[in-house]
Write a protein that binds this DNA or RNA. Structure first.
Lengths: 217, 217
DNA sequence: CAGTATTTGTGAAACCCTTCACAAGAGTGA
DNA sequence: TCACTCTTGTGAAGGGTTTCACAAATACTG
């Protein structure tokens, strides 16, 4: 294990590690034993130097003249990303998006196990979503602590997102993935990431709208 | 309308424009007439210079000594992003994620109207999702053209994503938002953006795992 | 209406990320 | 073993994005 201490890793590098991980998964399925930075870069529309630089922040995993061993590199990236283990996750808000995510297989595949699901709607509480019973949001704090939840997925309406977020933090949760289209305030020691699917559509809309403008002054 | 031709706008700037747009929406609700770059930056955890620079790529929308007129700036950003109009969208693949997105209100709010929904599962075809009947994927090409679809949301299984993607492109669609965890190959003149919700969770996992390591050499 | 306080818009500087280019290591074949 | 090929790992260069800092413009105040 070539271990290195990390100074500061950019968000883009972390994002690409996830991308490499997925690429390696399918390379393994395809029967590859090793992969060169050149080939990996080609598949993911990146440059070979980028791939090598990203990996070099964490150690040297390759063999000169040969490339990277697929299986091993996959394992090493899993370790770096912290997905070589199980994370207990809770999901709050069983609306459209929430209930889709409860059954979203990509999460489970990467070791994110949804242990608790909450809502405050009496009609939803007690109902069964893919083997998980929806709990009453008023029991949330206690259950979050009891189930040793590390990460919370917030799929509640924007109007209550901050309130729910505050409760979650009170329960000691240190990482939140927020789907509500609001900017949540969290203390420095709590990790927050936002996911907003409309933003990607807006990016497409921008590009469609400004296709031509990218040339003239 | 202070118009400027655009040389190259970075992805981060476009992303932040979406963020500003949402911020302005709530500022308007809160009754603000004007907003300074300082205040807007504070709300979105950015720097005032960043806000001003982003906007300056497209024109000068503010008043010195006063700030930006909320309503007007909102309208101008909508124009820049191309969301001051209706976009006809089709969604392909009515699984967990797909059916959640059909009812996702943020899309409609920004003018993205889902006009067509497709699946190849006989049990789903003909069923009604929030007023839209699921069509047979084998009629896709014809219906995409007939309904004048500009953007396609792909929520099909990874294994068939490339095939469906190819069909969509054949129908003349020029923008695709892909939720399948694969790297789609598309021609240069087709816009593609990927959304992968697991990647954000992995980012949280990385940060939780490497919390401390960010110091030592 | 003059003086003061704000805040924009923007070149220039600073910073960060990506790409280049090459030495060094490892495999391959004669 | 030696020559040749391939590919990594990495300083340095290059390019792009963010921040700084300030002139210019406007609002506000007495």
């Amino acid at each position: 294990m070539t271990a290195k201490k990390i100074r500061k890793i950019s968000d883009s590098t972390i994002h690409r590690l996830s991308v490499y991980y997925r690429a390696l998964l399918s390379l393994e399925k395809e029967g590859y034993e090793t992969i060169s930075s050149k080939e990996l870069a080609k598949r993911e529309k990146l440059t070979p130097a980028q791939v090598r630089k990203d990996l070099s922040f964490f150690g040297s995993f390759g063999t000169r003249g040969l490339g990277y061993p697929v299986k091993q590199l996959m394992q090493q990236i899993a370790e770096i990303l912290g997905i070589n283990r199980v994370w207990n996750v809770a999901l709050i808000g069983v609306g459209n998006v929430g209930s889709a995510l409860v059954s979203y297989k990509e999460f489970a595949k990467q070791g994110f196990v949804i242990k608790q699901v909450f809502d405050n709607d009496q009609r939803k509480i007690g109902s069964n979503h893919k083997g998980i019973v929806v709990s009453d949001a008023s029991d949330m704090k206690r259950l979050l602590i009891e189930s040793d939840i590390s990460i919370v997925i917030l799929t509640v309406p924007a109007s209550v997102a901050q309130l729910v977020c505050d409760d979650v933090i009170e329960a000691g949760v240190k990482a939140i993935l927020n789907f509500a289209p609001v900017n949540l305030r969290v203390p420095d020691n709590v990790l927050l990431r936002n996911e907003n699917m409309a933003i990607e559509l807006e990016h497409l809309s921008f590009s469609l709208t400004n296709k031509d403008m990218l040339l003239v002054e």
